[in-house]
Amino acid sequence: MSSDWIDIGALEDIPARGARVVKTAMGCVAVFRTGADEVFALENSCPHKGGPLSEGIVHGNKVTCPLHNWVFSLETGEAQGADEGTVPTYPARIDSGRVLLEHSFLQSRMAAE
């Protein structure tokens, strides 16, 4: 396993069509697992009113914000339909059933203080 990636937990720790958050000094990162067992990491905060995207309903490769039903692509972070806004997306991948986030990205989220 490359040292550029950090193991944050097992894939099965995230419910299928669900998400868990990773806490960082600069706020939470939502790590999603789709029904097809792909993972995506996005800023947890909705650009509309800051809703926690990790709590939304995951359908296909999209998530619906629990506060006002904005729908975002998990891949690009872009709002779908008539809404306009983008959620930052971050590198994430699966290796042998483990979920990995990029080391340099996590580093940058720690350096804030």
Partner: peptide, 15 residues
């Protein structure tokens, strides 16, 4: 219980 908690916490390390 665990599903209510973050899967990982990097805030602790940052401190």
């Amino acid at each position: 219980e665990e599903k209510y908690e973050p899967i990982a916490d990097f805030k602790l390390e940052a401190a």
